[in-house]
Write a protein that binds this DNA or RNA. Structure first.
Length: 290
DNA sequence: CACTTGACCTGTCCGC
DNA sequence: TGCGGACAGGTCAAGT
């Protein structure tokens, strides 16, 4: 999943569906991805959902939080009803019957309606590549876990243009790697880094500290622009990403340069090339990205 | 310390 | 059709 817009979309979905629900049981089928004891969260109510970088936080009523990272192929899918798996996906874009062999954790939930009826639901954590993880931590100690300790500021939230210029000046790594470094800026991954650099007409291999003030400002604006479009379109479902109802996002229909190898540049018509930067596939227009 | 590379996994696609 | 290799939204730890 997984970059800021996709994780933000999941966060919004969870806010809509699981706030106020109580965790009644937790099935853990792949223990290595789950740290903490499930007994600590059974009986707790989900009170708040947050996103920090690419991580999702479910705050619970008992002072603990569940931190979930979906990495490349994780999914969180919410299904309402006692017979969930069966009815659930009948009209959903995912064809797999859930739970399936990639379902590693199942949260069973219940909540009370206004009229006092109890509804049941499940939240599936699926992950093909098994890179994702779930941790139970004390909410007050959240920032102390290694993932959050060194997390950079959030674009669209607290990263200012001044911050951005300073952090570019401090690095001589290729600018694309700086954008994707979670300790420098939280939330940007490969898709949005590629698109933001194309939008700002900056070559991904430029040393970060070589950008002019004008270029830095253009890149800052481009980052905000692509992330906002990513969120508005519900994220990019290029491969496995789906929202909490199993539905796809549509940012893949708006890719500017990501995955456009061999296709004409939308701005100048030059053929888009694929290079490798920091081990990641990188897409560029040699003519208009300098 | 800053930066780079390989490891962690499974699935898919492309060329021979 | 099968097989091998490259590649995929992300972090980490270990290397230079």
């Amino acid at each position: 999943m997984p970059e800021l817009p996709e994780v933000e979309t999941i966060k919004k979905g969870l806010e809509e569906y699981v706030i106020g629900d109580v965790i009644t049981e937790v099935e853990i089928h792949l223990p290595k991805i789950f740290s903490g004891k499930k007994s600590e969260i059974i009986g707790a109510e989900i009170t708040r959902i947050r996103r920090l970088g690419k991580a999702i936080i479910l705050e619970l009523s008992n002072g603990l939080s569940l931190i979930i990272h979906v990495k490349m192929t994780g999914q969180l899918i919410y299904i309402l009803g006692n017979n969930a798996a069966e009815k659930s996906l009948k009209n959903q874009p995912i064809s797999d019957f859930l739970p399936n062999k990639h379902t590693h954790v199942i949260f069973h939930l219940k909540s009370q309606n206004a009229d006092g009826n109890t509804k049941k639901a499940v939240l599936y954590f699926n992950d093909i590549r098994k890179f994702g993880w779930i941790k139970i931590v004390k909410t007050e100690n959240l920032k102390e876990i290694s993932f959050f300790k060194n997390l950079g500021k959030e674009p669209l939230r607290d990263l200012t243009l001044a911050d951005f210029k300073i952090l570019l000046k401090k690095s001589k790594a290729p600018v694309k790697q700086v954008l994707m470094d979670q300790q420098k800026i939280a939330g940007i991954g490969n898709i949005y880094a590629n698109d933001a650099l194309w939008e700002a007409q900056i070559h991904p291999l430029r040393m970060a500290n070589s950008l002019t003030k004008k270029e830095s400002a253009a890149l800052f604006t481009s980052i905000e622009k692509v992330l906002i479009l990513g969120i508005e379109t519900g994220g990019a479902s290029e491969r496995n990403y789906v929202n909490v109802l199993g539905g796809k996002g549509s940012y893949q229909n708006y890719f500017l340069v990501y995955k456009k190898t061999g296709k004409p540049c939308k701005r100048c018509g030059e053929i888009i090339e694929r290079i490798v930067v920091g081990g990641r596939g990188t897409f560029i227009c040699q003519k208009c990205q300098r």
